[in-house]
């Protein structure tokens, strides 16, 4: 549906502006990203508001997305599957974040996730897919460095939570970061039935 709508709008714009086929394809691709992202964001906001977990879901989503844009990871092969999987995961993060943030000292969880993420960064970041794989070693090292810098900034923010009193959101953020890094592991690729040769890109 998203692809067809994007193609239709791109075709209209291309006709009006006398664009060639290449420009039309670029339009369609850009629109697919915008429309797909818009639909998913609106659905997530609406569902999390209905379930009363909006703020927790947003914290989890931002924590997840910030890392995801750098580290990569497994993707579903169709928009429909991607929509259902990501909305479900993010709503679960919001629900768990709201209901279980008090179960243990968040700092311990944060350091455990930091360790897991640090190891994953050194081993798999940037984790590609069949559609996008980064082989350039300099670029891979740059992305690993960015990931570690961001992780360190994140753990500092987590450690500072008693000062700024945002304890109730810390667990959601931890879950978001954990999920982002879990999705770059070979296990996640296997669970999502994605064939990808990790050995090719490893530094």
């Amino acid at each position: 549906m998203v692809k067809r709508l994007s193609d239709y709008i791109a075709s209209y714009i291309s006709n009006e502006l006398n664009y060639n086929q290449d420009k039309g394809e670029v339009m369609s691709y850009g629109l697919e990203i915008i429309i797909g992202g818009f639909l998913k964001t609106i659905s997530l906001i609406t569902l999390s508001l209905v379930l009363g977990i909006f703020s927790y879901t947003m914290v989890g989503m931002v924590s997840f997305a910030v890392f995801r844009t750098i580290i990569g990871g497994a993707h579903q092969d169709t928009y429909g599957k991607c929509f259902v999987t990501s909305i479900t995961i993010l709503l679960c993060i919001g629900a768990l974040g709201k209901n279980f943030y008090f179960v243990a000292d968040s700092s311990i969880w944060a350091f455990l996730v930091y360790g897991q993420s640090f190891f994953s960064t050194l081993t798999w970041v940037p984790a590609g897919t069949e559609k996008k794989e980064i082989k350039n070693q300099k670029l891979r090292i740059k992305m690993k460095s960015m990931s570690i810098a961001l992780l360190t900034l994140w753990i500092i923010l987590i450690i500072l939570y008693p000062i700024y009193n945002y304890q109730q959101y810390v667990f959601s953020s931890i879950l978001g970061v954990f999920t982002a890094f879990f999705l770059i592991t070979p296990l996640a690729y296997k669970l999502m039935s994605i064939k990808f040769n990790f050995k090719k890109g490893v530094i």
Partner: peptide, 12 residues
């Protein structure tokens, strides 16, 4: 630096 976290359509 922008692994799409929402969806990964086929790039032209």
């Amino acid at each position: 630096f922008s692994f799409l976290w929402v969806y990964e359509p086929d790039a032209p």
